[in-house]
Design a protein around this nucleic acid. Structure first.
Lengths: 347, 347
DNA sequence: CTGAAAGCGCTTACAG
DNA sequence: CTGAAAGCGCTTACAG
């Protein structure tokens, strides 16, 4: 592969001039620039980004460590992060932690070894020593979706509190009283917050959230299935199950179906995180939708601010309830579309 | 950030010895090794991968350019690629082309500039000059899922021919005769092959595939919706629509639902690529499943072979039909699960 | 406007 | 077993 030396030789100038011409440095004569460009063309030269990074101490690369790529929410987040990063002249390298702290650590380490300019992370746990070290050592960093309390890093996330309150109001209005939740790991902020929000919203109606109605999941489908089976085995199973993410909702559907039961007749279901398929499931699933694209964009912008040495703004955007039919209907025969005023725009 | 010089100073040895100790070179005295390790520990030293790459001319990184991350098939492929690569000591950088040739080119260029050791690609089109150049220039490369004819690069993909034949047999057995397809872009191999396989299978039953029954899609949901609307507007709409990927099937479901029609009563639906949600859609969708994980693994192995200077094996794995209820049922009332002998293992 | 030179952080023949 | 030195491909003060 042609190097800058080859270009210099071909153009009859020094490598310094080649470098300047290619980097748009003003003090290059038009003649020299033209010869360089011609040489670049005939040689098919492309600057070696590795060498450039070593020299300039910047890679124009962002690292993104997410908890699970197979979760459509994170896939969309990753896509939006890459889009915004590209618009700002950065590449992004994605590390998929698969909800495993050890894998998360592996990716953080690898990314840091590659000297990425900044790190976006949605932590799988309370923070490994390596990540905490990185934050303390001054690696530009931003948390997205999930975060670690006590670490001085901007947080870009959405607040589901109001949406959860709307959900509970919806369920209460439908006459449901025995409500249960499939929670995410307590080591994650979203794992805790969604349970807290649910409990508070229930309390406002004088409803309890007994331990038997809190199933411990891990944000993956298998756990949603297991927890739902447990709920179904209860002497008095809950009337509605609220899954703290869409994969656990998938698992819940699997469990209900495996027993030959039906949603919402036998048990209702709602999910945190909306996905296009929820419109077409049987029945369409009531869900809480996050402004995922906006979160991704805001996270990248905050990170780029940090990289530039500025503060980097924390952002909290509201999530919203999208009512469908999986928790039952107000009355009468099922209309073809959800009658709720809060509705998803047609996909 | 501490460099190898700092470690050398701290340990009282030369940088050469530090390098050797860290790379497991045999000729390092136990005493020196111990001092180096201690210095590494106290300094929190991590080797700079950028510098190492420049020096060794290898990045231990694979590039993966896929057509659309938001497509669950490609998400799963990417995940399996990363897993296998990690097991073999490689990182992977994903470039999402979003079915756009210009974006694909951007990613190929960026990846090559970073001097990745090898490139895995599922081309969005017939091949841009840049990609063809890369292949010709000897960049280790393998095609996965989609490929470009006439380029001397191993291909890892699945063959859906038999599965499509099984599908048509299933549809014919159900009494369907007017069958239509939502095709992928003709610039892609999978776009062409799935139409060809469908046409051939129909021909075996003496059924035609008129142009009106071939809708041109682009593998994304919007096109599936538009094409399906066109089918529905036909004087004689097809009895079953076969979507060449799962996103176009989603679009088809959107279109059918928007008209207030029902699957399979008003129109049947089948899809290429199976996803977990198809079990829970209304109705469950009959689909052709690819051995996605295996494809990802085989692709990485072939690429690593190429990187090592060996041939790298092309692999073709069969896809298989998974019958559910979206094309109608043989007879009698709908049983709770599909009665087909070809069945999806419970998720 | 241009070039010679230093240096980014490593690895690796080479000599001892 | 160890170190001094060269060199990977760039960029950028410095001098002219």
């Amino acid at each position: 592969m042609a190097s800058i030396k080859d270009v210099a030789a071909e153009a009859g100038v020094s490598v310094a001039t080649v470098s300047r011409a290619l980097n748009g440095h003003p003090s290059v004569s038009p003649a020299a620039r033209a010869r360089v460009l011609a040489a670049v063309e005939t040689l098919g030269y492309r600057p070696n980004a590795v060498a450039r990074s070593l020299r300039t101490d910047q890679t124009r690369t962002l690292g993104l460590v997410i908890s699970d790529v197979m979760n459509p929410y994170f896939t969309e987040l990753a896509r939006s992060v890459e889009e915004e990063a590209r618009a700002l002249g950065y590449s992004v390298i994605i590390g998929n932690a698969d909800e495993r702290p050890d894998l998360q650590d592996h990716h953080v380490t690898t990314l840091l070894d590659r000297r990425i300019d900044g790190l976006l992370v949605s932590p799988t746990d309370g923070g490994s020593p390596r990540m905490l070290d990185a934050a303390r050592a001054g690696t530009p960093m931003v948390f997205v979706d999930r975060w670690i309390p006590g670490v001085d890093v901007p947080v870009v996330r959405s607040d589901g509190r109001n949406a959860v309150r709307d959900l509970v109001a919806h369920l209460h209005g439908l006459g449901h009283r025995r409500l249960a939740i499939i929670a995410g790991p307590a080591a994650t902020t979203t794992g805790r917050e969604r349970v807290d929000a649910f409990r508070e919203a229930l309390a406002a109606y004088g409803l309890p959230l007994p331990d038997a109605c809190i199933g411990q999941g891990d944000f993956q489908a298998g756990s949603g299935r297991r927890v739902t089976e447990g709920f179904l085995d209860l002497p008095e199973p809950p009337e509605v199950v609220f899954a703290a993410d869409n994969l656990m909702a998938l698992g819940a559907l699997d469990a209900v179906r495996a027993r030959g039961l039906r949603v919402p007749e036998d048990i209702g279901l709602a999910a945190f995180d909306d996905i296009p398929w929820f419109v077409h499931t049987d029945p369409p699933v009531t869900a809480i939708a996050q402004p995922t694209r906006e979160l991704g964009r805001a996270a990248v912008r905050a990170l780029v601010e940090r990289i530039a040495g500025r503060a980097g703004e924390s952002v909290t955007l509201p999530a919203r309830l999208v009512v469908r039919r999986s928790c039952g209907e107000p009355d009468g025969p099922a209309p073809h579309q959800s009658p709720s005023p809060v509705r998803r725009s047609t996909p």
